[in-house]
Nucleic acid binder design. Structure first.
Lengths: 215, 215
DNA sequence: TAATCAATATACTCGTGAGTAGAGGAGAGA
DNA sequence: TCTCTCCTCTACTCACGAGTATATTGATTA
C-alpha cells in the first residue's frame, strides 16, 4: 500500500481515480473549505440572514444536504468563517507582540496588516458579523477573541506613549477610533477596484496615524 | 366648532375624550412615531431580519395589523427610520456649510455632531442598515443621501487644506477614515454607560483630528 | 462476495414571519 | 338616529428556509 502510493507520487503513472486514505481526507478538507469560502462570500455580500444554505449550495452546484454532510448547521458555517478571520488577526497580533522597534512603528505595522485582513473574505466576515446573529455561547467566545485583538492594540499604544513615539492620547478611545477607521473598509472596499488592499491599508493608516492637523 | 376648541384650549375644562380633527391627526402622527421608535430600537438591537413586526407590535402592546394601519410594510418601517437619521445628518451638514471659521474648525464641529447623531436611535440605524436589506430602489436613494453627507465632509477637508488649517491629506481616504472612526460607536456605544454621546464624540474627534504621532 | 462506509441526491417536515381578510366597536357628522 | 370613517383585533394564507429521512451509488474492507 505504501509502495503503491510512493510509486504514484513519482508521477510515473497518470492520476488514478482510486484515492488513498490521506487523499480522501485532503479532498474532504478541500470540499469543506470550498463550502466555507462560498458561504462567506455570500454572507458578506447579502448578509447572514438573507443568505440561505440552498443559495450557497447552488453556487457550488451541490445540494443543501451536502453542506450538512460537511458542517453541522448554518451557525457552524458562520462560526468557522469568523474563526478563520480571527485566526489571521491573532497571528498578526502575535507577530506585532514579538516585533522590535518603537511602539509607533510596531503599531503602524500591525494596523496595516489589520486593515488588509479586513479586506479579506474571512476577515471581512469578522467585521460584518454582529454577535446578535450568533447563539449566546458563540457570541461570548466571539467577543472574547475580538477583545484579545483589541488588547494588543491598546498595549501597543501604551508602549508607544511610554517610549515617547506616540502622543499621550486616551488609549481606550484611540483604539476605538483606529478600529473604526480600519474596520470600515470591510463595508466599502471593492476587491475589483483599482487599489489593492495593501494600498488602501497604507493610505488609511497614514491618515489615522498623522491626523488632520498640520504639523 | 371653533368656539368649542378655543374654549377647551383655555384649559377651563378637564381634558375631553372627544377629539378635534387636528388632535386626531396629531395622535395618529404620535402613534406612527411610537411605532418607528419601537421598531428602530429593536432593529438596532437585534438586526432588521431578526426582528419581526410581531415583536415590535408586542413591545407596544398592540397587534401587527395595527402597524400595517400606520405603515405600508416592513421595509417602509425601516426606510422611515433611516430617513429620520439621514435628516438629522443633513441638517448638521447644512449648518456646517453655513458656518464660519477655518476648515479645520468647521470640520471639527461637524464631526462632533456627526458622531453624536451616530449614537442616536435613528442615527445608529443609518449606520447599522446595510443597503442589501433594502429593495434596489430604496438602496439607491439611501446610498445617494449618504453620498451627500460624505461630499460635505470632503468639501470641508478640501477647504481646510486650502486655507492651511488642515494638513495636505488624501481627501478621499481622510473622509473614509473619519467616517469609519465616527460610525463605529453606532456598534459599541452603550447609551446606559457613564459617558454621554457628547463626551464620546469629543474624545473620538480629538483622536482622529490629532492622530497618534507626537506633535 | 458480502457488508460497510462515504458522498450525494430527492423529497419531505415544520416553524416562523410577512402580509391580508374581515369583523367589531367607537366617535363624528348629517 | 343612521351612517361613515377610523382604529384595532382575531384568525387566517402563503412563502421561505432550516434541518431531516431516506435512497442510491460507488468505493473500501473483511
Amino acid at each position: 500500500m505504501l509502495a503503491a502510493k510512493e510509486f504514484r507520487l513519482t508521477k510515473l503513472v497518470a492520476a488514478s481515480p482510486f484515492r488513498t486514505r490521506e487523499e480522501r481526507e485532503r479532498e474532504r478538507e478541500e470540499k469543506r473549505e470550498a463550502v466555507l469560502l462560498a458561504a462567506v462570500r455570500m454572507f458578506n455580500a447579502r448578509g447572514y440572514h438573507a443568505t440561505s444554505l440552498d443559495d450557497v449550495a447552488a453556487s457550488l452546484g451541490i445540494s443543501k444536504p451536502t453542506i450538512y454532510h460537511y458542517l453541522g448547521n448554518k451557525e457552524q458555517v458562520l462560526v468557522e468563517c469568523v474563526n478563520r478571520g480571527l485566526a489571521m488577526l491573532r497571528t498578526a497580533a502575535d507577530e506585532a507582540a514579538d516585533a522590535s522597534g518603537t511602539g509607533f512603528d510596531r503599531l503602524r505595522a500591525f494596523l496595516c496588516r489589520y486593515a488588509q485582513i479586513n479586506m479579506d473574505d474571512f476577515g471581512r466576515c469578522v467585521i460584518l458579523t454582529n454577535d446578535e446573529v450568533l447563539s449566546m455561547d458563540s457570541a461570548t467566545r466571539f467577543r472574547a477573541r475580538k477583545r484579545e485583538i483589541d488588547a494588543v492594540v491598546r498595549a501597543l499604544i501604551a508602549e508607544g506613549i511610554a517610549d515617547g513615539s506616540i502622543a499621550p492620547v486616551d488609549v481606550r478611545f484611540a483604539s476605538f477610533a483606529l478600529a473604526g477607521a480600519l474596520n470600515w473598509p470591510a463595508r466599502w472596499h471593492d476587491p475589483d477596484g483599482t487599489l489593492t488592499p495593501e494600498q488602501v491599508a497604507e493610505k488609511l493608516v497614514d491618515v489615522v496615524m498623522n491626523g488632520m492637523a498640520p504639523r
